[in-house]
Amino acid sequence: MQRVFPFFVEAALVTLELTALALILGLVAAAFAAAAKMSRPAILRAIGTVYVSLFRGTPCLIQLFVLYFGGPQVGINLEPFAAGVIGLGLNIGAYMAESIRGAVMAVDRGQTEAARTIGFSRFQTLRKVVLPQAARLMIRPLGVNTVALLKGSALVSTISVVELTYTAQRFIGSTYKPFEIFGVAALLYMIMVYAVARIVDLLDKRFAIA
């Protein structure tokens, strides 16, 4: 067990890296999707809705398979790691879009009315009044999404990304100790999830409205 432990730590770092990159992609996709769904033009709203329903309405595993195994058929050739980041990012982005939208809609309508009656434009109202309040409201839901992303990243082991779950499976063959091996993997996931939860707590406190 001591012999394989360093490989696990390294693999956990890959999982973190994968999660961090997918998180960035997911947040960008989510911001665009949420903005599209809340915009006026029907075509933009439709695009946002299709993206969200497509990625929330199908298994993440299938999305990864379509991208990684189906991609080459339509000229998309991706390394496992890149496919993992893109697949996970686009998937979590759909969930995060709804978290963002929920937070924006949770800001009291009276806030918008007050800003508009002062004479602020729609855009100024959004930027100065609604978004600063929504940003605080979306910290927790986005934190929940990030934890789901971190745990869900185990799926990319199926497209041969050498991360924590893949590494654990690889050592089963040489050690014949699945209980210990998967137990260690689980423990490492838990430590990472705990760290993410702590960061979310800190952010939530830091940005609480006085």
Partner: peptide, 17 residues
């Protein structure tokens, strides 16, 4: 036009942030 009208609401609607 709205810059020239002040409006006060039942629920105040101050900006809490």
């Amino acid at each position: 036009v709205r810059q020239q009208m002040g409006m006060v609401f039942q629920h105040f609607n101050l900006f809490p942030h």
